[in-house]
Simulated scan of single mutants.
Amino acid sequence: MSAPAAPETFPAGAQKATVAAGCFWGVEHMYRKAFDNKGLLDAKVGYIGGDSKSPSYRSVCSGRTGHAEALQVVFDPEKVTYRQLIEFFYKMHDPTTLNRQGPDTGTQYRSGIFFHNEEQEKIAKEITEKVNKEWWKGKVVTQVLPAGEWWDAEKYHQLYLDRNPGGYECPSHFLRKFPDLSE
C-alpha cells in the first residue's frame, strides 16, 4: 500500500503541478528529460482523483478506485512556468482518447490536469481551450479538476525508466511539434 505524500522542504516560491497522461513511467521520464536543470526541483509518480484511501498499483489498475496514474512535479516558477509545463503536457501525450493512451485502457490512464490554486485553474483551462482549438481541433477530453489527495506510488515505480532502460513506454508518449499558441 502506498502512503500519503510526506511533507517536503523546497525553496520558497516553489510550486506543484500535477498531471495525468497515461502510464506514469513515461510521463515522469519525459518531464525529467525536458525540465531537469531547467526549473524542475522534484518529480514523482503516484495516484490522484480517486475515492479510496491508500491506493496501491494493483488496486488502481483494477479500475475500481477512480484514481489516475499521475505525475506531480515541484518546480521553480522563476525558471519554468506552469504554462510551459501544461503546454508540454499537451505535446507529450494524446489528450483526445477517453480513458486511454495507446494500448493502455482504463480510467487510470485518463488525461487530466489537477490544479493546486485558482491561478493554475485559470491557466489550465485557458491552455486547454487553446490547444483544443489550435492543435487538437476540438477533440480534447482532458479533465481539469482540483487536486485532491495525492498518494505516492510504490517505490519501484519512481524513476522506473531510468532504472529499467528499455522498459515499457506507452507509444503515445512522444513530443509532438505544434506551432506556438496564439496570444
Rank of each mutant, 00 (worst) to 15 (best):
F114V: 02
F114L: 06
H116C: 09
N117E: 05
E118N: 14
E118A: 15
E118I: 05
E119M: 03
E119K: 13
Q120D: 03
Q120I: 00
E121G: 02
K122H: 10
K122T: 14
I123L: 10
A124Y: 00
A124F: 05
A124R: 02
E126V: 02
E126K: 11
I127F: 01
T128G: 13
T128N: 12
T128K: 10
E129N: 13
K130Y: 08
V131I: 06
V131Q: 00
N132V: 00
N132E: 02
N132D: 15
K133S: 14
E134H: 04
W135M: 00
W135L: 04
W135N: 02
W136M: 02
K137P: 02
K137A: 14
K137G: 03
K137S: 13
G138F: 11
G138L: 03
K139A: 15
V140C: 05
V140S: 06
V140F: 06
V141L: 05
V141C: 07
V141Q: 02
V141P: 02
T142N: 07
T142A: 15
Q143S: 15
V144M: 09
L145F: 03
P146G: 08
P146Y: 07
A147S: 14
A147R: 05
G148F: 13
G148P: 02
G148C: 11
E149G: 06
W150Q: 06
W151Y: 15
D152S: 12
D152M: 09
D152C: 09
D152G: 05
D152I: 03
E154W: 12
K155H: 12
K155M: 09
K155N: 14
Y156R: 11
Y156I: 12
H157W: 11
H157S: 08
Q158N: 13
L159N: 15
L159K: 14
Y160K: 07
L161M: 13
L161F: 11
D162I: 12
R163V: 04
N164R: 11
N164H: 15
N164I: 02
P165S: 11
P165R: 10
G166L: 10
G166P: 00
G166S: 08
G166F: 07
G166C: 10
G166W: 09
G167E: 05
G167W: 10
Y168I: 12
Y168F: 12
E169I: 13
C170K: 02
S172P: 01
H173I: 10
H173N: 04
F174M: 08
F174P: 01
L175R: 14
L175D: 09
